[in-house]
């Protein structure tokens, strides 16, 4: 029995410390798209999780325009992606949700082309569709009776939240500081929270599941999304073409439809 005990204990620990099955970061999953391109060339794009729907859309156009080419994506939190690229992950293109993480890449001279900002994003209040707490402005969120969920200050959306609150001169007392925008959105969608602070694009992406409330103070912090090819790319030319697509009118339209602002 002792032996079995130890075995289960190890499993329990492994589960615990490695948070088995948990996947609550910005990650939208591993690489998607077709995994092998028979004969044709392939590029791998590492992009911030918030870019998932727009970039998948653009990936399809790219594949259409470049016959026999496959675009693979890895959507995750920007800092995760930078860590992976630093660790030698085979990325051709990197699109970050903030300039800080792109700087980590350029500081190590791991970028191919110079980073270009291709989109911006601002914060918006998200509430459940029926807005049970009757939130109308950012100042309402300072009310302690409102169940408020925001991003933790350690992650980009949380940093943005802090700056916005400071600019507006209010003190937020959140009930939870989540790991990612997805987590904040989840708590609002499920009705656990009366309000959350997320990006405009997240509100649009969530459709009818949440109600978005714009507030003027949001302009105080604009999140800028830079994109660049990666130095280790074996297909730099094709990667650059994808970057060009994102910066093109077509790319900008897709991004604008999803709620992103122009750079």
């Amino acid at each position: 029995m002792k032996r079995r005990f130890t075995t289960i204990a190890v499993i329990a620990l492994a589960c615990g410390t490695a948070a088995c099955g948990a996947d609550t970061s910005d990650a939208g999953g591993g690489p998607s798209g077709s995994s092998t391109a028979s004969g044709g060339s392939k590029i791998t794009v590492y992009a911030a999780a918030s870019l998932k729907s727009t970039f998948e859309h653009l990936g399809q156009s790219f594949e259409k325009a470049h016959d026999g080419t496959t675009v693979e994506f890895n959507f995750a939190g920007s800092s995760d992606l930078v860590s992976q690229i630093k660790g030698g992950a085979p990325a051709d293109v990197f699109a970050s949700a903030d300039e800080k993480n792109m700087t980590k890449l350029t500081a190590d001279k791991l970028h191919g082309s110079d980073p270009k900002v291709f989109a911006t994003n601002t914060l918006e209040i998200a509430t459940p569709p029926d807005n049970p707490a009757g939130v109308t402005s950012l100042k309402d969120l300072a009310d302690k009776d409102i169940t408020l969920v925001v991003c933790a200050p350690e992650v980009p959306c949380g940093a943005a939240t802090g700056k916005v609150a400071k600019a507006a001169g209010i003190t937020l007392s959140p009930d939870s500081e989540e790991q990612s925008v997805t987590d904040v959105l989840g708590k609002v969608k499920s009705g656990e929270a009366d309000a959350g602070l997320v990006y405009v694009t997240d509100v649009i992406g969530a459709g009818d599941a949440v109600k978005g409330i714009e507030f003027p103070e949001s302009t105080a912090v604009t999140n800028r999304y830079p994109i660049a090819t990666v130095a280790v790319s074996r297909n730099a030319a094709l990667g650059q073409q994808f970057v060009d697509l994102v910066l093109s009118d077509e790319g900008q339209k897709v991004l604008a439809d999803a709620g992103f602002g122009r750079p």
């Binding site: 005990f5 289960i8 204990a9 329990a12 620990l13 589960c15 615990g16 410390t17 490695a18 948070a19 088995c20 099955g21 948990a22 996947d23 609550t24 969920v149 933790a152 959140p174 009930d175 939870s176 500081e177 989540e178 790991q179 987590d183 989840g186 708590k187 656990e192």
Partner: peptide
Amino acid sequence: AVLSFARSLGEFGATITFAGSLQ
């Protein structure tokens, strides 16, 4: 009980989903 304690100590996914995260 020890296994339960160990599993609780390492709990992550259910906590972050259900309980949130506040210092």
